[in-house]
Design a protein around this nucleic acid. Sequence first.
DNA 1: GTCTATAGCACGATAGAC
DNA 2: GTCTATCGTGCTATAGAC
Lengths: 198, 198
Amino acid sequence: MPKQVNTKQKIIEAAIDLIAKYGYRGASVRKIAAEVGIRESAIYNHFKNKEEILKQIIAEIFVTPFEFKNVEEKAKRGKSFLREFVVAYKLITFDKKKEKLFRVLVIELFQNAALRESFLQEFHQKDIQQISQAFFIMMQNGLIRSGDPMFMAQEFLAPLFYIRLQVSLLRIDGKPTTPVSTQFEKHVDFFWESVSLQ
Amino acid sequence: MPKQVNTKQKIIEAAIDLIAKYGYRGASVRKIAAEVGIRESAIYNHFKNKEEILKQIIAEIFVTPFEFKNVEEKAKRGKSFLREFVVAYKLITFDKKKEKLFRVLVIELFQNAALRESFLQEFHQKDIQQISQAFFIMMQNGLIRSGDPMFMAQEFLAPLFYIRLQVSLLRIDGKPTTPVSTQFEKHVDFFWESVSLQ
DNA sequence: GTCTATAGCACGATAGAC
DNA sequence: GTCTATCGTGCTATAGAC
């Protein structure tokens, strides 16, 4: 059992690789099958059609978001909570699998309605909820200036998204990412200085 | 002469439309020709091949950035300069042609090396230069707290890019954009409150 | 500068043997 | 669950007539 690797999962992995490179249209069933090491027709034993492969990949993009335990408690620590969040965000940015899924997201965002829907409703939404909840608590505890916590969360997250995009672009061409990726930490410092009351 | 419309330009326009919808691979020479109202073979009288059409479109993405005159003077006005900048940015976000080019940018960013290069070097770079220059002057005039003007410019522009992305996504599906687009103005207020010394 | 016609290839998908 | 073989379609691009 441990040696028997799932062909279906192999197909998904190969498809993610190829879509991240060539987009959905460019990632042909032929290429996917070749990468897995089977014939095109064998693909159809695992998926009804090509579209079904994409659907499953899209589902993968939106699993395992940030799941912080005890946000209520951690938020009281103020800046260190934000730092912890950004460290997690940075890790995801450099995670090989997550990076590929991020590319798929950006490439197909304007071409796939379901993906678009999930992005607008889930992608940052979950992060925003957590961060805005944390900001709300920080406001109550007099750690930061008052304001709309949701909007503040957007302001906090948008630069992270933009840095992530830049890092992903640089990594495709094998360019150095340090100048950009250090902005993650700088962003926390800048933001905290912007909102903190101390 | 005024009535004689350029076929070459028509091809470009049709290609932008179709690439914004289906991506470069999905925008076939066939579809482009059909949209223009000519045969595929006629396309090749104007462009060497399909790739050449994309090249010209990419070039269009990076023309006419923000060209503010007298940044030195305007920067002294502080917040109102930022407000003026964001008004221009918002206009571009809702401009039909620019919006399509923005979609092409996002779709092809991970798939076209030349586009990626230009994006990293030019897209925000020009904006960043202007904004950071303005921040530098504001610092000298004691309007804002001191810091790295380049980094501050990134912090100012990243949320604008993210709002633009959201607006573009909403507009595809004909969804209301007001809740998101009002963030443009809110962002200026929030940012100014973050950096101003008054 | 446009047309018709066609070459040559890659695509997604199915039928049927093993 | 994989294979071989094949179908029908759409693709980029070219040749040559008008």
